[in-house]
Design a protein around this nucleic acid. Structure first.
Lengths: 343, 343
DNA sequence: ACGGACGTTGTTAGCGTTAACAATTCCTGT
DNA sequence: ACAGGAATTGTTAACGCTAACAACGTCCGT
């Protein structure tokens, strides 16, 4: 008793309102809502009708409180402006939705471990049941490993950490393919425009490149290093253009390759006649660079989806074992790499 | 059940646990947590110490239940893989975080009104306090207008709908600037590569272009239409290359401009000598196209931030009036547009 | 017709927090 | 020292839902 409605009180309807209208107890309403067995069909229909009539919506906070499940997953990403992270986020969201979860995002401004810690804490405070981390820096991955105890965490990106379940692309493999392709084309060696040193992706791609070169007995030239941006690729390209002996460059991503292409073009060098270029990612624009970019395709959306599946599996199936799913990138042949001609 | 084991019962600490440890009532703990006045400093310290010791974290579901506030905002976006939406999302998240809100995202697969309806419903079910819609299609905007009654909604993107508060870029203005620039350069007229017909952005940019041409007494050529992708820009470019009279084209976005550039290049036409090109967006790569793209810069991040401010203002300040914030794009001069030479 | 199994529904008790109010303590000025 | 008020703390009752169990039928076999 107590708080009976005063008059034309216009609050959101609650379960009790539905119950009254349908002439049943609120528990029966709950049963209908949750698809519990043993509800007589006509009762169910009456309840459903009442729900529709009142436009009733269950209060998720109340439900979360009692079930101890928020139906929410968190994503922490580093720079969701970049194509890769954005696509992964997209894949994650898709997969989450079809698994019946909401997704809450938060992105890092800086990449120290403390920042990752903070982000995950924030998410935990919100009551997420698990989190996917898109944060492929050395520092953040180790930070993630530390906090996986409180809430299930899955990382997506790269690296061979085994402390945290992870889905990653075969960066080493991909870099090897790219480098091998260039070598097969007859280049004496392959130069490398690497990504930031503290990114796992960079490290793995560089390693794949180096290993392949060594396995082929080719000279391993010094690495140029960019920051993933076209700008940095351009600057590196200017430097490569000076070097007489470069005939092939493997770029750690497509954006840098774009900058490189432009620098080479300005230097009067033509691609692939003078210098062959291979990228990594296969962003949608890569096919429209001048010339069209030969690159390693990786399916970011799939990556995100798989990461989410892993997380949900751990959440629901009770698979506690740190798994490591790997997705292999694929060489896409276009026109930016060709037979060595010397220059 | 994961890491739960029978012997060591180890539930998450709740407020009562903290209270007991600190030797106070749970209400005092609540007061400390919420910064209520009239708590003696040393009591506060004891409580704080207990919180730290137990690593206590307030249960957000319980709090949301009683306060009727979820501290969560929803974002529905269309294709967060694109640079624009991704950047806006980023801006939104930033702003939301600093305003003390969580952000829950959901993206649309298809763009009919029903789909928007569903997405917003989903978000409502989760208990979001407001939503930002990044969905610049004709159909979705009108759908949004319809449902703004239940939960505050702010749209971001384009259009001159007044039914829903909105922050948009001055697309018409920007298109006018771009077109005007080309005209000033001496081109008789300017061709247009437009975006999808059902996008508000497309419509506004096309209108801005058309109006400017008409105001200048220039002929208004037929429009080519793409879908924002480089691929579609390439195809349109192939067609433009056939037309003898095109000396300048204004592309509705940079990605299509990239494809256009490539098509022109293949057709043996040089930019800007034979044809001048101006884009829209100023994506980070635009400066590294061949040639560097003259384009209209718009600050997507800012757009997102402003949208969120608007929403929060409505939520907290109780400003119910549909506002319309407009951000002006800015012409960035690079090398893809030059004085008309005829061809 | 009767006892029991089962299908169906209702009742009661929390979940962990904040709001409202009651109770206590500590000061002031006189 | 004492009333009166402010500062500080405690107690109780929601918030809207699900879990657990109790209470009704209803149907069957005997």
């Amino acid at each position: 008793m107590g708080t009976e409605s005063a008059g034309t009180e216009h609050r959101q309807p609650v379960m009790a309102d539905v119950a009254k209208l349908a002439g049943v107890s609120h528990q029966t309403v709950s049963r209908v809502l949750n698809g519990a067995p043993h509800v007589r069909p006509d009762t169910r229909d009456r309840v459903l009708a009442a729900i529709r009539e009142l436009d009733y919506r269950p209060n998720s906070a109340a439900r979360a409180l009692v079930t101890r499940r928020s139906q929410t997953l968190g994503v922490v990403s580093f720079d969701s402006t970049l194509y890769g992270p954005a696509s992964m986020l997209d894949g994650i969201e898709q997969a989450a939705r079809s698994a019946g979860y909401f997704v809450s995002v938060t992105s890092l401004r800086s990449l120290d471990g403390r920042s990752v810690q903070e982000a995950v804490d924030r998410l935990r405070d919100q009551g997420v049941e698990g989190v996917v981390v898109i944060a492929p820096q050395t520092s953040s991955v180790s930070a993630v490993a530390r906090l996986s105890s409180s809430v299930p965490v899955v990382a997506v990106g790269s690296g061979n950490q085994t402390q945290v379940p992870m889905v990653s692309v075969g960066n080493r493999f991909g870099a090897g393919e790219a480098t091998g392709h260039l070598l097969d084309l007859g280049h004496r060696t392959v130069h490398h425009l690497a990504g930031p040193a503290n990114w796992l992706e960079s490290q793995d791609r560089e390693e794949g490149w180096r290993l392949t070169l060594m396995a082929a007995g080719a000279r391993v030239p010094d690495v140029e290093r960019g920051d993933w941006s076209a700008r940095s690729g351009y600057q590196a390209g200017l430097r490569f253009a000076q070097l007489r002996d470069v005939t092939a460059v493997f770029c750690a991503n497509d954006h840098m390759a774009l900058g490189l292409l432009r620098a080479l073009h300005e230097a009067g060098l033509s691609v692939p006649e003078d210098i062959s270029v291979v990228g990594f990612d296969d962003i949608p624009e890569a096919a429209y660079f001048i010339p069209p970019l030969t690159t390693m395709r990786q399916d970011f959306g799939e990556l995100g989806r798989r990461a989410l599946e892993l997380l949900v599996g751990e959440l629901e199936g009770g698979t506690p074992s740190p798994t490591h799913v790997q997705i292999h990138p694929e060489l896409v042949l276009r026109r930016s790499a060709s037979r060595a001609a010397g220059r």
